[in-house]
């Protein structure tokens, strides 16, 4: 120990600064580990592609997703079946065919990715806000506050969440809030109200552990307020664990939308081309299920997209976990 410490002590301040500037901080290190993991790198690229697609959907979509064609215009994908039963050639520009109203499936899936992307991030913001507020408050203040907050958390934990989101949508879905952004807002809110429990428990545990550590004790003895302790010491040191939790939570938000849409109670169907959230993957899944015998390409395309998105999210989360917290590696 003495041998190492001595040369360090002999360094001038400028030399120490230079050494520190060269060394990697926690995030640079994590980024390097993440890049080395091929599965998560690939899934990250896929997710970026999904983001780009949802941003510039009107430029990419080959057809207008709302344009309906004559009632009998339902075609299977050209690669699946080249000709209709009547012997007519299928139009190759409908890559995944059309639905029963003659709308292009591929364009609709592209527009649906917008909804799914927003629904991955917006609920997360609400969940983080509530969860961290409750968790950190309970862990930091302790005592009675902790006890009361944790009892509430226990009760919310036992709530059957999907069931309640179904109830919320059926009951409040037709009000002004429910209509906003075709129901995306209500969706984010209801997830936010129900899903903060896991994060609250996690952050409370973190606050309790970190509270006893020397550097927090030192800060407190120097007169740091609770607020400073939380923002300067406890929050930055829990950040990587919170990020890992968030990465694993996102796929479940997307899947709840898919589930609700499949039950026919998710987003409101839209006919206005100026709206951002025209359709959602859950809705497409329901339509595809109804056309399963005549147009399997519809369902397969939707399901394949959902699977690709969710698997990418999961693998990215795995990579993130291994990069940020190698001890958790499974």
């Amino acid at each position: 120990m003495a041998q190492i410490a001595k040369p360090l002590l002999q360094l001038t301040k400028a030399q120490i600064d230079a050494k520190l500037a060269n060394s990697e901080n926690q995030w640079q290190l994590a980024w390097r580990r993440l890049r080395r993991n091929k599965a998560s790198l690939i899934s990250m690229i896929i997710l970026i592609v999904f983001l780009l697609i949802s941003l510039v959907a009107p430029l990419i979509a080959p057809h207008n997703p709302l344009e309906q064609r004559t009632t009998n215009f339902q075609q299977t994908p050209p690669f699946w079946q080249a000709q209709s039963p009547a012997g007519k050639d299928y139009n190759p520009s409908f890559i995944l065919g059309t639905d029963s109203l003659g709308r292009d499936v591929f364009s609709r899936i592209i527009y649906g990715s917008r909804t799914s992307f927003v629904l991955s991030l917006l609920p997360l913001a609400i969940v983080m806000l509530i969860g961290m507020l409750i968790g950190f408050t309970a862990g930091l203040l302790g005592g009675k506050v902790d006890n009361i907050l944790m009892r509430i958390t226990d009760i919310f934990y036992a709530f059957p969440d999907t069931l309640f989101i179904v109830l919320i949508f059926v009951t409040v879905g037709n009000t002004a809030i429910g209509r906003m952004a075709n129901g995306v807002l209500l969706f984010a809110l209801s997830i936010g109200i129900l899903f903060w429990v896991g994060l609250a428990r996690l952050t409370r545990g973190q606050a309790l552990t970190l509270k006893g550590r020397e550097f927090v004790e030192a800060a407190r003895s120097l007169g740091a307020s609770q607020w400073q302790l939380m923002w300067k010491h406890i929050f930055p040191n829990s950040l990587s664990i919170i990020i890992i939790w968030a990465a694993y939570a996102i796929p479940s938000f997307v899947l709840i939308e898919v589930t609700l849409g499949f039950l026919g109670i998710g987003l409101r169907p839209s006919l206005d081309p100026n709206e951002i959230f025209l359709t959602s993957w859950g809705r497409l899944l329901l339509d595809g299920r109804n056309d399963i015998q005549s147009q399997p390409g519809f369902l397969l395309g939707t399901v394949g997209t959902i699977a690709l998105y969710v698997i990418s999210l999961r693998f990215f989360a795995d990579g993130l976990r291994d990069a940020l917290d190698p001890r958790q590696k499974g």
């Binding site: 899944l285 369902l299 999210l313």
Partner: peptide
């Protein structure tokens, strides 16, 4: 099992229906 955990059972159900039921 990685794939099984990641793929939602709704999606899995659709695949199974298409493969074993429709095709």
């Amino acid at each position: 099992s990685n794939i099984g955990v990641a793929v939602p059972n709704l999606v899995m159900g659709v695949f199974l229906i298409i493969v074993f039921g429709v095709q």
